[in-house]
Design a protein around this nucleic acid. Structure first.
Lengths: 353, 353
DNA sequence: ATGGTTGATGAAACTGGTTACATGTGTCAA
DNA sequence: TTGACACATGTAACCAGTTTCATCAACCAT
């Protein structure tokens, strides 16, 4: 029973005519109801209802100059880390009565520039991006449009855009130090594609010049659980077996963990594994993953606040460094310690029939 | 060196004046460059640049009647399943030159209605929602605004909105049948909050009246890995130990898996575990998770297409049923079989130093 | 009765684009 | 030389709202 009337949507004038008032009065009913006489208001509201009138967002926006939404450009939604950032950003933006438009870039600066253009075209009031590397077209776009844009996932007060993030190099170093503190010297480092990801490069660079100097071997795989599995297998087939695996991301660490178990290698007894991110699930893996916590929720909220205030006050927000910290759980142990770790492979006790 | 000029953004008239042409010509340079003489075009482009002019999306929208973005209302971004749906939706929408605005509802119909209102207010051209249960205000909103809205994550051709999804009851039944086929009769069912989630309820109802009739015990926990762990522990403490655990979601299954391992219970030897969703990581867990695949990527893409076509042609799309299928992996085994499964706890072979 | 104030409403200008239509110029065939 | 026509450009109306300012009636104090 489709009503095929190519019904032209009613507009404010139609409502005004139908209610027998002026357009100004209708507008007032929307924006300042208390200034309209009760009887008049009622008439207008009835007219609105009977015409199924919904005000045009565009027409409002043209007057206020505000569209009330901002865009976020993230590499992918498949990594829980970005989902987390967006989740907290979205909820914080909501408190500023702002909505969030999401665009994924697949780590490709060209796609990023295109999607950014698309966001500007549809009227985004601000932008959130991830990482330091972007296409020249991207920079010229935000330059000419003077669009409030904050860059996240890293911290650099000297960057051309305000940054809100953590020190990736330091986070990686924290993880490495934890391993060397536990006596590990031969360490496998698992990381995602470094060519297309500056944060990965920053993390790798944080491993340089460490003292005591460890013997690092690098494994580059796709940034996914499957990639982690792949790395886990490759590590086991290497000539010199490392005593610990340092994963530059928790998803990789999860994959490594699963694969080591699959291959019968006990963690942390035979090998320690450390991650970096601290995803919500990481605390519940088996064994519970030792990792470096990255404050991504706070980062999302901070980015939301920064953009909102920039949009509202026109003042460029200060860059902000969020600290990351080591979370020691059950997947790392001192070298040479066999069976000594309290949580790992706890014997089954009194369950079962 | 902030330029504190409270610079009013340049508009089309300013550009026209600066270039010494009419507004129509400037507009043409934007929309039909080939109709403008080369020299003129150049003049105009220079004026645009020097004034840092970016056309107002709102003003464009007011003429075209199009804002070029649609909204998606999902319970949360923290569950990988919704991240997946949104990811595929976003990329498919991009092919229709549409952007995606994301709003989370936290499974709360009131929040959902509010956020929906927000999306309509900022001009969303269409909406995607999840699940069958919504607030009356929500329905009246989409009714009066006549907003193209598709409902996902379930299938019901009789629903008031077109649905694009799978049969939740059937998917759960598929999982259960797999377990009974393997000889399991005493089965623990782990699920998320049912009160606030109709899909969970549908899945539970799919378990009813099964033949052969299994002995089911239900464990309701938060829909998270932590919740799964909790359920895993609770199951082990139950009086009658089930031989299999049916999780109505893969995140729960992951948690159960981790916890069982932590407690020294071997899967699938001592207990089989089956999930429902088939998240990308599930294939790589240890042991690889047997689950029922839900075509969420296809669903996201289908929803994007449906909304796009509805917006463009004004024709209500047909509801669409996507089928789900069993994916047998390593976490389930026949009852009574000890050590017989090929993948589980394979002995460590020739690795190590 | 007069003037001042308040409250409710309307007329019209305005936002920043698009576009129908009009105008003016140059080229070419008759 | 003239008419036809294409091409480039301009004028002004238009989209759907908001907002300024004016108007007018009612009320109250003088």
């Amino acid at each position: 029973m489709q009503r095929n009337t190519p019904r032209k949507r009613a507009n404010l004038r139609d409502v005004a005519a139908s209610a027998g008032v002026s357009v100004a009065t209708v507008s007032r009913v929307m924006n300042a109801p208390e200034t309209v006489a009760k009887a008049t208001r009622k008439k207008v509201e009835e007219a609105m209802n009977s015409l199924h009138w919904v005000p045009s967002a565009a027409a409002r926006a043209i007057n206020s100059g505000r569209t009330r939404f901002v865009g976020a450009l993230v590499p992918t939604l498949d990594n829980a880390i970005f989902a987390r950032v967006l989740a907290s950003m979205e909820s914080r933006l909501a408190t500023h009565r702002l909505s969030l438009v999401v665009a994924t870039t697949d780590n490709d600066p060209v796609q990023e520039a295109e999607k950014a253009k698309g966001l500007v075209d549809i009227g985004a009031e601000g932008l959130m991006i991830s990482g330091v590397t972007h296409a020249p077209e991207f920079y010229s776009l935000i330059e000419r449009s003077q669009l409030p844009t904050v860059s996240t996932s890293f911290y650099d007060p000297g960057y051309r855009l305000p940054t809100i993030g953590y020190d990736n190099a330091a986070a990686a170093r924290t993880a490495l130090t934890h391993l060397t503190d536990l006596g590990h010297r031969r360490i496998a480092v698992v990381h995602g594609p470094s060519a297309s990801n500056d944060r990965t490069r920053a993390r790798i660079s944080g491993l340089e010049g460490h003292s005591p100097k460890p013997d690092l071997s690098f494994f580059e795989v796709q940034l996914s659980i499957a990639g982690g599995c792949e790395a886990g297998l490759a590590i086991l087939q290497a000539a010199d077996q490392p005593s610990a695996v340092l994963c530059l991301s928790d998803v990789l660490a999860s994959g490594v963990l699963f694969e080591l178990q699959r291959q019968g290698v006990s963690v942390p007894h035979e090998k320690s594994v450390i991650g970096l991110d601290d995803l919500v699930g990481s605390a519940h893996l088996f064994p519970e993953l030792t990792t470096v916590h990255l404050p991504v929720s706070r980062m999302g909220a901070a980015a939301a606040d920064a953009i909102a205030s920039w949009v509202e006050t026109q003042k460029i927000p200060e860059p902000s460094l969020l600290n990351s910290d080591l979370v020691v759980r059950a997947s790392t142990a001192r070298t040479g310690t066999i069976g000594g770790h309290p949580v790992a492979r706890r014997a089954r006790t009194d369950f079962g029939k």
